[in-house]
Structures are given as C-alpha cells and as structure tokens.
C-alpha cells in the first residue's frame, strides 16, 4: 500500500467531481491509500497570484502546513493547477528562510518545508507493472493522445518532470493498461487554463488546436490529468466546434477514468456520465494484454 496525503482541490468537489470519484474508485485496486488533509482550503489558483503575491504563497502554505501537521511525507495533488501552485510555493518557501517565516506568521502555522508534493502521474507510475497487469480485466486498447498541459510539467527546474518538452511518463502509464499513445505536437501546449469563463474565445482557439491535432493524428480519446484541461476540452466543446467549423466527437478522459475502465470499474462509478462530450469509445475485439510493458526508447534515454 502506498499511503499518500490527499489534497483534492476545489474543482474535484464540483465541476471535476468525476476526477475525484474515479481516483477513489481505482485507489484500492492500485494500492493507493488516500488520506485527505483535514479542513483544507483553496490554493488560490491563478486568481491569487494574478492579484496578490503574498496571498498566492499563504493559501498553499496553509495546505502544506496542515499536511505536515498530520505527519505526512507526501501529498498527492491530482489537479495540475493546484499541484503547480503547491510545488512552486514549497520551492519558494524552502529557498528563502525569511519568506518562510513571514508566511508562517500569516497562516498562523509553522511550515517546515519537509513535505513532498506529487502529481497524479507520478503516483500512478509508481504502481508496480505486474500488480497492475493482474488486475486488468478490459485492456484499454485505444489509441490515445496523452495531454499533459502546461502546469504539470512546468517550470521544469521546480517540478522536475521527466522530459519538459516531450514527457513520456503518462504515455508509459497508458501503455501499461493496453493503450497506444500517439506522438503529437500539443502535448504540453496551453489549453487556455483559467480563461474558461472570462475569455472563452481564447480557450476555444487554444483548445481547438489541441483537439484538432489529436484527431488528425488518429487519437480516439484524449487523456488528461487536470480539471482545467478537462473542462476546456470537454465543457467548451461547442465553442471549439463553432470556431473550428466542424464537429469533434473525441471524448476527453481523466487518466484515472481510463485506468478504471481497464480495471473493469463501472462507467457510473467513474463518473463518465458527467462528461458533456459522451464517452463513446469504438468497439474493440477483446484480447488479453499479452505484451510485456516496455518503457519507450525515449524514456530509457533519460
């Protein structure tokens, strides 16, 4: 069992609740034990750091301090935006003692800086291959585009992802459950993030390019690990279609949902019915995953 502190973040209680549901649904079978941080607060997202720098440090710092109080060593943050905020703040505070003290004063808690923030991909990639293989009932044999987005992999010096410009770690997890992943150009491009409400036109433009490239290169589903990416690619589909002047039926799945499907968990439990774009995957002939998981050559080079 891998015991992890859990910070769901606000979206996972609302528009992205299927992300939370699917993560909890797969956690038992994949050996992840989630311990939700009691009384957590919002990380402040892009709003806080756009408006007030201290606030953008204090809100995540309180979350980290709460986790430390629970004697947790690692905290899993499924939302890429929250992950980015928490990890960046952790880095900023541990590298500046004065700042750490000042922020500790503001949040009325002492933040020590000895907790590690991990994202969903890192947690999933730790699941041993053999253990997972045994659990797979319906291999996820689709061609997928793994979409990492921007906040999961940047800034590279802080979040320390595998390959900043062409990450492989999500692809590797998807291959483990039987998927084929495409090599595409928009893996780490921005979807429009926090402009979902205020500048929907920009979201449609940026997310449109992502969907177009994924479809052109033969993807049957887009796999994401971020509620913002999901809502921009899924909820804003009609705006995208209007801008691009064509229909796109490609579904957008959280990586936890894809794993859940492979593990044979029901659509309902995984929250697939909550998507705006219906999750209709092409019918495939059922075969058991025979091929041994081989890390890609690219990943080996690293």
């Amino acid at each position: 069992m891998m015991r992890l502190g859990y910070f769901p973040g606000c979206s996972l209680l609302g528009t992205a609740r299927e992300y939370d549901e699917s993560l909890r649904a797969i956690s038992h079978k994949t050996g992840i034990e989630l311990f939700e941080i009691p009384d957590w607060n919002c990380c402040g997202a892009s709003a806080a750091h756009c408006i007030n720098h201290d606030l953008s440090l204090a809100l995540p710092a309180r979350i980290l301090a709460l986790a430390e109080k629970e004697k947790l060593e690692e905290i899993l943050v499924p939302c890429a935006a929250c992950f980015n905020r928490l990890d960046v703040v952790r880095h900023e505070l541990i590298s500046d003692e004065k700042l750490r003290q000042r922020i500790s004063g503001i949040i009325e808690m002492d933040f020590q800086g000895n907790i590690k923030v991990i994202n969903i991909i890192e947690a999933l990639s730790r699941i041993p291959s053999d253990g997972l293989k045994e659990q797979i009932l319906k291999p996820f044999q689709y061609t997928v585009a793994c979409y990492y987005g921007c906040l999961l992999v940047r800034p590279p010096k802080i979040v320390n992802f595998d390959r900043a410009e062409d990450p492989q770690i999500m692809d590797d997890v998807m291959k483990k459950i039987g998927a084929d992943t495409i090599d595409w150009a928009y893996k780490v491009e921005c979807c429009g993030a926090g402009f979902s409400v205020s500048r929907t036109d920009i979201v449609a433009k940026l997310s449109g390019k992502i969907i177009k490239d994924a479809v052109q290169r033969g993807a049957e589903a887009i796999i994401v690990a971020c509620p913002m990416c999901h809502s921009n690619l899924d909820m804003r589909r009609s705006e995208i279609e209007r801008l691009e002047g064509r229909k796109y039926s490609i579904p957008v799945l959280y990586i936890t949902q894809a794993i859940g499907l492979a593990l044979g968990i029901s659509n309902k439990k995984l929250g697939l019915h909550r998507h705006i774009v219906p999750v209709k995957l092409p019918l495939k002939v059922k075969t058991v995953v025979e091929k041994e998981f081989v890390p890609t050559a690219k990943a080996e080079e690293e």
Binding site: C10, G14, D39, W40, N41, C42, G44, I51, G194
Partner: peptide, 16 residues
C-alpha cells in the same frame, strides 16, 4: 473573474 474567485474563497475557505 479573479476577484470573484478570491471573494468566493475569502469567506468559505474553498472555491464555490
């Protein structure tokens, strides 16, 4: 949008 966002968490602690 940013301000509404912050207002929302200021009183409840989480985004609504």
């Amino acid at each position: 949008f940013h301000k509404s966002f912050l207002d929302s968490i200021k009183y409840t602690g989480r985004l609504h």
